[in-house]
Nucleic acid binder design. Structure first.
Lengths: 338, 338
DNA sequence: CTGTTAGCGCTTTCAG
DNA sequence: CTGAAAGCGCTAACAG
């Protein structure tokens, strides 16, 4: 660590520490000429204020935390990109915490942030438990929290997510319009509002279009590849197997696609797929894998903007409302089959 | 921010601040009973030490920074995953800075870190300029820097990367063994050691196997999709076009694959591809897209471990050497054509 | 075993 | 316009 601090500068210039501080902070009450002298020397010695002394004094860290379940999906890394983008533009630093879908880690990280390490938190819940005292306790300490994507409905704050119900509905209709009669649902088992909304969108679309839902063809994946593979294999191996699949999450969709290849089904002729996905390469994967793509970068940016608005107003209470950005249904044109 | 601090605890328990501090730090010189009392109250009031006061005092932040060119590729997000993994296991926090391939931002971020905000830095150079004073200045201030992937050879510190020369060599041989006669090289224009090593591996493999290199078929992409598309189109449109492509970077390979689809070439029969890639979905993309896959997660972990070793020894100087983890050549089995 | 005190580097009254 | 001094919350001598 450098030993260039205010005292160094003050000594060198025969000024007091406070004057130097004021000069660097561009205070009204310091002469133009001293300001010049100070800032010149500061630049020359490459002075950087000690962030901890400053945070300690100002009770503000110019740092925010992102807590999210994973990072190796394109969706979340795009979100981080958006967050970093806005944060840097505001001179803020970004701490990253990955829960790997563990509730316990989420609690641990929240507790780590209880004492001012960050001015605010952006969070996508791993929370399968539905418990949220750790978050409430964070907010009780005046640390604003904004949710993105996997929001927590029971907490009164601002939430950014997508129009999951509508896009699931539209996506299902999309399959139905293609004349697909036996549509399976591929989701993951979790109590997230997101899963619920997507499932409801699927169900309503089916009902409103008088397509029957076969309970056997509603598959909840676990995230364990082996188990999920069995489930999907079974789904696709029986005689009355589906000829369309609506996947509410990306990972099972990819697994499904792999299995389809192994079973040597002909896509898209025997099976049409639509999936929530932010894979940039989805278009390369298969012409029939129509995607419901969420505006990830924009989600990250918007959540961060909202957080900063609160921070700017001396931690003004965040209003309790949900912004739903629109997902886009992207259909591949090609009809090549594999 | 919470107002539970050492003073609060001390007042409540009729102890001095220093005793409370010692008790919480599990010092030798405090009785078992007071330790109990203190830690009980601390837990009860959910006491969290103020990180800034601590950092200011200890001159250590328990935080590291990751500076890297981008995050939305699977490769880099896997690396971050590895970094976070080791950092958290050591009780460290992780700050993220994305340069978006901009040298200026890299310089800016390094300067932000000059004054103790972090104890160490993990870095993958965007540096196209080859300039590295900003990094030297960081190290001059006793902040250890470990490079990963895009290392900076002229800086004397530890570097973690992969055996790029060897795997490029092997990859090329792989194509040659398949009987491919006209092999194009797809890279990006940059002075990175990585690019150089991969290119050299390609060249040497070609020479040693007496396959001629056609200068027309060495294409350097820019990262601008439109330009790159033109270049690749041209490469594939001429009569004596290549029947094999060695891609030293993932992005041009994907672009290439897209174009191939548009041109309706038959893969793998008319064109065999091999590419450096960490796409988890590469196997789904195409059976012929053999990949050279870098151990990204392990790169992240190893770099972080090495950094911590230095931090543990009171910022012991990091030795100047390069660790080269092995990439894996993964060939898809299927022979289906698109 | 415990308390007193000084000081990390900074900002901000309060006095000139 | 500038300086002296206090204090943010913590740790670590030093003294009992």
């Amino acid at each position: 660590m450098s030993d260039v601090n205010l005292k160094t500068l003050a000594r060198e210039l025969n000024l007091s520490v406070s004057t130097v501080s004021r000069a660097l902070n561009d205070s009204f009450e310091v002469s133009r000429s001293t300001k010049k002298k100070v800032s010149n020397l500061a630049r020359q010695l490459n002075y950087q204020p000690n962030p901890f002394a400053r945070s300690l004094r100002n009770k503000s860290s110019k740092t925010i935390a992102v807590i999210l379940p994973e990072i190796t999906s394109n969706f979340f890394s795009l979100i981080i990109n958006g967050i970093e983008n806005v944060a840097r533009a505001n001179g803020y630093h970004v701490l990253i915490y990955i829960t790997h879908e563990s509730d316990a880690k989420e609690v641990e990280y929240c507790s780590l942030l209880q004492n001012g390490r960050v001015d605010g938190v952006l969070m996508s819940m791993s929370g399968h438990s539905g418990d949220s005292v750790h978050i409430k306790s964070l907010m009780a300490r005046q640390i604003p929290v904004v949710f993105f994507d996997r929001i927590c409905e029971e907490i009164a704050t601002t939430k950014i997510t997508t129009n999951d119900y509508e896009s699931a509905y539209q996506g299902t209709v999309h399959l139905i319009r293609k004349g697909v009669g036996r549509i399976a649902y591929l989701g993951i088992s979790s109590g997230h509002s997101i899963s619920k909304n997507r499932f409801q969108g699927f169900v309503d679309a089916m009902k409103n279009n008088h397509v029957q839902i076969d309970p056997e063809q509603i598959v909840y994946c676990t995230g364990h590849e082996h188990t999920d593979r069995q489930k999907i294999l079974q789904l696709l191996s029986v005689p009355g197997r589906p000829n369309g699949i609506f996947a509410a999450v990306e990972q099972p969709a990819l697994l499904c696609y792999e299995i389809v290849r192994e079973l040597d089904l002909s896509i898209p002729h025997d099976l049409k797929l639509i999936s929530f996905s932010n894979l940039r390469t989805a278009s390369l994967l298969n012409p029939s894998l129509t995607t419901i793509t969420q505006p990830a970068f924009e989600i990250g940016r918007e959540a961060t903007r909202i957080l900063f608005k609160a921070l700017a107003c001396h931690n003004a209470q965040l209003d309790d409302f949900t912004i739903r950005l629109k997902s886009e249904i992207i259909e591949r044109e090609s009809t090549a089959s594999i």
